[in-house]
Design a binder for these strands. Structure first.
Lengths: 332, 332
DNA sequence: AGAGAGTTCTGGAGCGTTCCAGTAGCGTTG
DNA sequence: CAACGCTACTGGAACGCTCCAGAACTCTCT
């Protein structure tokens, strides 16, 4: 219950009220060892009493550290991000650091502006949860503060640590599953030519080659869904589809059902991401799940280490897993 | 392209390089009138050249203003929030203010902690996009900085402006629509006893009374969905349901289809929010749409006014509209 | 008892800004 | 030409904190 009459109480007010110097208040509050137990409790009591809150701006200015990290997200409404952020926050909280989130509305320019803004605000480091920023922007930010990025960078920035999921392994999980069910004609439905998508596309190609099967990639923005549905009914048509992400997979599922194509019996579908939508569609979408919270925690861990001066940039890859639901079955 | 050799250049570096006093640099950069055009351009050129960025911490400390506002959301993955935040940001950007987002993981305690944290960071004001915080927490924050909340507060805080959608009107829209289609036995499916939900529930009751129809409210957490589905098949059972929000409506739709109950012919469903999910389910959900971006812009407008010292707290209500999709039809 | 070693505490400089009270220079005016 | 009023600029205090060198005090040891 802060008293907060007029202006917020400062460290000097606390010092005066406790009859000590402001330096000692500073030490006591930060838990420095060289303060006697008696005075410390007294000072803390007085501070609490006055409703004192240490001024982050002043501390940041004096120390060059604000104890706050920034998280830059390209798109708030992407539920993938929410889990990653939760992971970051849990780690940051544990280390006693605050977290602020910046939001770039899926626009690289806005994203870059927000990144600068957060750095201006004095955050101690930034985690970029977006693959939309180019290496130059990332490196410019990294020249100011430690930066860690989550996801697969389009081009590798030089001074930025990266945490990503193992898209190759994820694609293998999906294709092994389909192959194991008996599927042989499996097409890939790609959403865009962005980095994460292309990693999955390549992994698809390699896994198919490994299994000695022909690979076919269709693009959503080039009428791939319609082409796939048209082919799926025919004798030599595909019996399964590995989609680049869950949104694409959900669209396909939707349109397939509209076209009276039975899923999974006539067409099996596997998505990627294990987004919320994968559980909301009917039947539930079989999909590759990324360890989102773990990715967030790992990113935070790397950032904290770099803030503590520790280290050089690294790249960490985490293992995905497969969530089997209702859109996959043996071909009929 | 910042040079950024060692430490970031300060206003003093710029002053020295331009051969003027630091005060003049400060004035020039902030666009003060009393600086000759010649010196201003020279100073700005030098600043740009050195890659000077004004230190928000120092400015905040000296001025008591950081030019950054905070947005507190209860849940990142709620797509409703993303639109509101976009509206807030567009307004804040226009006013030259930065925006940081804090995230409370749908937990009132975390939410309150993040709120304090943002205030500690020195934001000039906060917009709370969540109905989970109690009046005491909001008022405590409002004692420090201007606070505007979006949504319907559980209890009315005293020093906080509120922007909300007109739940009563929204419920009327939904019920008029159903009534117009010929429905007479319309039940309400309520998700929780939170503020927004109870406003909708009351509005439902009143609209039904106005139309001289009996009202029945079922609760999701008390087996309401099952009860509703059981009754819906029977002769005197309900022919339509007005759900408290889209998530609830989607669950109902899902379970209805599972139970082989035809939607909309045997049961019409109207949701509330026009969330993403309303467009993703099949058939598309008829639902009440809130003007989300407008709500965000309005909230930012109110906050900026209060930051400029302008005003007393107000309450603004914006009009919802009805998005008619595939889950409503005349009863058969 | 004096030196040395802790322990606990203090005063002041400094972080990068803004703000305020001036000052310098110059043209106008009575 | 002294007084005045502008415009363009300056120096230093202040914002609230941290950090550092050192002061004051208490113990121990010789």
């Amino acid at each position: 219950m802060p008293t907060a009459d007029r202006a917020a109480p400062t460290i000097v007010d606390v010092a005066r009220a406790a009859g000590v110097s402001k330096s000692l208040v500073s030490l006591a509050i930060r838990g420095d060892a060289g303060v006697s137990e008696a005075t410390r409790t007294r000072i803390l009591a007085v501070a609490d009493d006055l409703g004192y809150r240490s001024n982050v701006l002043a501390r940041g200015l004096a120390r060059g550290r604000t104890q706050v990290i920034g998280v830059l997200v390209s798109d708030l409404s992407n539920p993938y991000h929410a889990d990653v952020v939760a992971g970051i926050e849990s780690r940051a909280d544990a280390a006693g650091l605050g977290t602020v989130i910046g939001h770039g509305q899926s626009d690289a320019r806005i994203l870059a502006a927000r990144l600068d803004q957060m750095l201006d605000l004095g955050v101690d480091g930034v985690i970029v949860v977006s693959a939309m920023l180019d290496a130059a922007a990332l490196d410019a930010a990294a020249a100011r503060r430690p930066v860690v990025m989550v996801g697969r960078p389009f081009e590798q920035p030089r001074h930025v640590s990266v945490v990503r999921n193992h898209d190759e392994r994820g694609a293998s999980l999906a294709l092994d599953h389909l192959h194991g069910l008996g599927h042989r004609r499996i097409v890939h439905l790609a959403s865009s030519r962005r980095a994460a998508a292309s990693a999955r596309r390549h992994a698809y190609g390699e896994a198919m080659t490994r299994a000695d099967l022909p690979s076919t990639t269709l693009w959503v923005d080039e009428g791939g869904v319609a082409a796939l549905l048209a082919a799926a009914g025919t004798p030599a048509g595909p019996t399964a589809c590995f989609a680049g992400n869950d949104r694409t997979a959900a669209t396909l599922l939707h349109d397939a059902l509209d076209a009276e194509l039975a899923v999974p019996t006539e067409l099996s579908i596997v998505g990627y991401d294990d987004a919320q939508i994968a559980r909301q569609v009917r039947p539930g979408l079989t999909t590759v799940a990324q360890p989102r919270e773990a990715i967030g925690r790992e990113a935070a861990r790397l950032l904290l280490a770099r803030i503590d001066g520790d280290s050089d940039t690294v790249e960490v890859t985490l293992e995905p897993s497969l969530a089997v639901r209702g859109t996959t079955a043996a071909p009929c």
